[in-house]
């Protein structure tokens, strides 16, 4: 067991446990969107789970660290909050805030993070602009809403895990990056109707089953 201190709280954690996981399991919330416990190589793409660790010069993402004995962690320093708030506001600056019509309403990770960081859903100081991307209705069983998507990549991971190969992928570059479907358009050859793992894992209802609409 490793003894660590998180926000002045003493914790005993099995050595080698993921730091973000350890905090979450001990009811210390750190905002996160792309973290998946079972995923070995962490995505580290949402840039929300920053913490400060004694002895490290700058805030680091907690999802990419394992617990070490004697670690002293702070999850709420000004530097951490500044990074988290900026990252969250950046995400919201290209997000379609229309919660009343969104199936994720009330269970949405973004709403939870906004409450936690004491931020509104509409970013202050940044222009709000939606990308020139359209809702993808092409898939026989799924619908994709790029203006909701936070590109956490969880859907691609679970799809690959369930089906041996991913039927989803990232497409485009820069701000136009989105999730795209590839593979057969023939519905009979797609495992999606029975699977729907991507719709279940999506934190913001950016991929939903067609029947839901």
């Amino acid at each position: 067991m490793s003894k660590i201190i998180v926000d002045e709280q003493y914790l005993e954690i099995i050595e080698g446990t993921n730091l973000l996981q350890a905090c979450l399991e001990n009811n210390i919330y750190i905002p996160n969107l792309c973290y998946l416990k079972e995923r070995k190589e962490k995505n580290a793409s949402c840039r929300l789970c920053f913490v400060e660790i004694e002895g490290m010069p700058k805030p680091v993402t907690s999802c990419t660290l394992d617990v070490e004995d004697g670690m002293v962690v702070r999850t709420d320093t000004p530097a951490v909050r500044r990074l988290q708030r900026t990252a969250f506001q950046l995400l919201m600056s290209v997000h379609e805030v229309d919660c009343a019509h969104c199936p994720a309403n009330k269970k949405c990770e973004l709403q939870k993070i906004a409450r936690f960081l004491k931020l509104g859903l509409k970013p202050k100081g940044l222009d709000h602009s939606l990308r020139e991307l359209e809702t993808d209705h092409d898939h026989p069983f799924l619908e994709y809403f790029p203006h909701r998507c936070v590109l956490c990549g969880k859907c691609i991971y679970v799809c690959k895990k369930r089906n041996g190969r991913p039927y989803l992928t990232f497409a485009g570059r820069g701000l136009d990056t989105q999730i795209s479907f590839f593979g057969d358009k023939d519905p009979l050859k797609l495992p999606c109707a029975e699977c729907l793992a991507c719709t279940l894992i999506c934190p913001v209802a950016a991929i939903i089953a067609k029947t839901d609409t």
Partner: peptide, 15 residues
């Protein structure tokens, strides 16, 4: 040329 993976590069450079 941003790969679009992380929030800061994808949306930050856009702003």
């Amino acid at each position: 040329e941003s790969c679009g993976k992380c929030t800061f590069c994808r949306i930050g450079t856009y702003h």
